[in-house]
Structure formats: structure tokens, C-alpha cells
Computed example of a mutant assay.
Amino acid sequence: MFGKVEHELEMHAPASEVWDLYGGLQLGKVVVAELPQMFEKVDLIQGDGGPGTVLKLTFAPGVLVPESTSNKEKFTKVDNKKRIKETEVIEGGYLDLGFTLFRVRFEVTEKGEESSILKSTIEYEVKEENTSNASLVSVQPLVVLAEFGKTYLNKNKAAKETN
């Protein structure tokens, strides 16, 4: 069984700034301090933020799925020109529940000089015998990450303007 959930949010920041946050390792560096209700730790296992980078995400209790507190994800696509990043869970998390694919994609589209759209997508595939677990997939963590990014970028913009 294949499924997909998406979320879009207009960001009041240039696409280049949104991409700087979501396109590499920056997001992982700031979410632990800024979103402790979601993330306990984000560890860089290998890589520099490009394709092949592997992160271990340790989630706050109840964020991921009841049976799991962490997973490893691999950056499978980082397209700086099109501003698309894809990551796939390669260990733990949803894979422990019969999913054969759990992919997260961030895509940043320029809307105007000071505005852009962040589109967040989860694509998943789950084994037939585990299709009931598809109900565990939620766009809500992506909504939280998008809203966080919007607030974070606006706060940084305001700080720059007052200096």
C-alpha cells in the first residue's frame, strides 16, 4: 500500500533563506534547542548535508510512534538548484512497523522577492499485512516543522533589522 500526505505554508522569507534552513544540516542543528517537545537529539552519523548524509533522530516521547523513540534517515536527494531535499528512513521508526518506505521531501518555491512556499511531503509504502499502521502517518510533525521554520526565519529577520 502506497500513501502520501502533504502540507504547504507560505514563508515570509526569500526562497534562498528558507532553503538555507531546510536544504542541509541547519534545521537539525536548531530544532533540538528550539523544539524540545519534538526532538531530544539529532546526531550526524556521516556526511556534510549532501546526498548520502545520515542522521540519527531521537524524538521526544510520543512524537514518533509508540514503539520507537529514534530512527536513522539518509539524505537521498539534495537539489540546490530546484531546492528539493528528500530523506528516507533507513533504520528504526516506521520501518519497525512494516513500512518499506518512509520518505520526507521539502521543496521550496520562490513566490516573490520576500516570499516563498515550503511544501512538505511524506510518501510511504507499507506491507499488506501492516496496512492498519498507515493510520499512524501524520502530516502534523511537518506542520510543526514548517511553522517553526517560519517563526525562526521571521525572528532572525527582525534581529537583523534591529542591529
Rank of each mutant, 00 (worst) to 15 (best):
E17F: 12
R83C: 10
R105H: 10
I117R: 04
K82M: 10
Y94N: 05
V5K: 01
G93K: 00
T53P: 02
L27I: 06
G92T: 08
I84F: 11
G47A: 07
E10N: 06
L55P: 00
Y152F: 09
H12G: 01
K157A: 14
L35I: 04
F75V: 15
A13W: 01
Q46P: 12
V78W: 11
Y152L: 01
V126C: 06
S70E: 15
T131I: 14
K4G: 09
A158T: 05
E129H: 12
K82S: 09
F102V: 08
E123K: 10
E17K: 11
V104M: 15
G62Q: 08
G52A: 11
D79N: 15
F148Y: 07
A146G: 06
N156L: 15
G49C: 13
G24A: 10
S138V: 05
R105E: 14
G23E: 01
G92F: 03
V139H: 02
G93H: 03
V42Y: 09
F75Q: 03
R105P: 11
E129G: 07
Y124F: 15
K77W: 11
F148L: 02
T76F: 14
E86Q: 15
S115R: 13
G49S: 13
V143W: 02
E129V: 07
V42W: 09
F39D: 03
D20W: 05
L97Y: 13
S132T: 10
Q37F: 12
Y152V: 01
L57F: 14
V108W: 04
L27A: 01
E73Q: 14
P51F: 10
V104K: 06
T58D: 14
Y22F: 07
Q140M: 09
T162K: 12
S116N: 05
N156Y: 04
L9Q: 03
P51H: 05
N133I: 06
G149L: 00
E129A: 14
V32N: 03
S68D: 15
P14T: 04
L35P: 01
S116P: 05
G28A: 12
T121F: 10
K119G: 05
N133A: 11
